[in-house]
């Protein structure tokens, strides 16, 4: 009897794909996260839809690589980083580098003054992120804006803990300096 058909050569941890609704669940839970990451990683708004599509196509194909004990956000960020890198290369050829322009009209507030302050802060942040180098930007973005834990960032970036802490410290220091240069009072 040939058993090789029904047995796997290497046992693996349980997969998220054991659940039939996994892709849908991941898509629903993380679509906005992927969109934000792509925009902050430099994908132009005109290309964001295509880039999102590419990320989720890759996710669909690589669901088997996603272990049950892994962070889905970290996994998605890894894919988004590569997709964004490809898009940035294409954009560089067509010179369409731009700042994010899809800050919501009310910027997360019903009070127009608060909304204006929020929008201004968002634009300051985006200007800062554009100027930051890619490694520090990824760490700063994930920890400060997406509430990743540092170990989760390590998993997303495949970097060591000390490296991530070091990048985070440097990025924070640069952010403080940037705000100071922008005229934002320290208190």
């Amino acid at each position: 009897m040939n058993r090789s058909v029904t047995t796997s050569p290497t046992p693996r941890p349980p997969l998220l794909t054991a659940h039939p609704g996994t892709f849908e669940a991941l898509y629903e839970a993380h679509f906005d996260f992927v969109f934000r990451c792509l925009r902050r990683l430099g994908v132009a708004s005109a290309n964001a839809e295509d880039a999102c599509q590419e990320v989720f196509i890759v996710l669909h194909r690589r669901l088997l690589d996603l272990r049950a004990d892994a962070s889905a956000r970290a996994f998605l960020f890894g894919i988004a980083t590569r997709v964004a890198s490809e898009h940035r290369r294409k954009q560089a050829r067509t010179a369409t580098l731009e700042l994010p322009d899809d800050v919501p009209a009310l910027a997360g507030a019903t009070d127009p003054f608060v909304a204006a302050a929020n929008a201004q802060a968002a634009r300051q942040l985006e200007r800062f992120l554009v100027a930051l180098d890619a490694d520090q930007r990824a760490v700063f973005m994930l920890v400060e804006l997406e509430d990743f834990s540092v170990p989760e960032v390590c998993e997303a970036l495949g970097a060591k803990l000390n490296t991530v802490y070091s990048r985070l410290r440097l990025a924070r220091a640069r952010f403080v300096r940037f705000l100071s240069e922008e005229g934002v009072p320290r208190e």
């Binding site: 969109f35 800050v103 802060a121 968002a122 705000l179 934002v184």
Partner: peptide, 18 residues
């Protein structure tokens, strides 16, 4: 510093949306 934290909180309230 607190000001930087405040800017971050405001920016997070106005995250880019699809």
């Amino acid at each position: 510093n607190p000001a930087a934290r405040r800017v971050l909180e405001r920016a997070k309230a106005a995250q880019p949306r699809a």
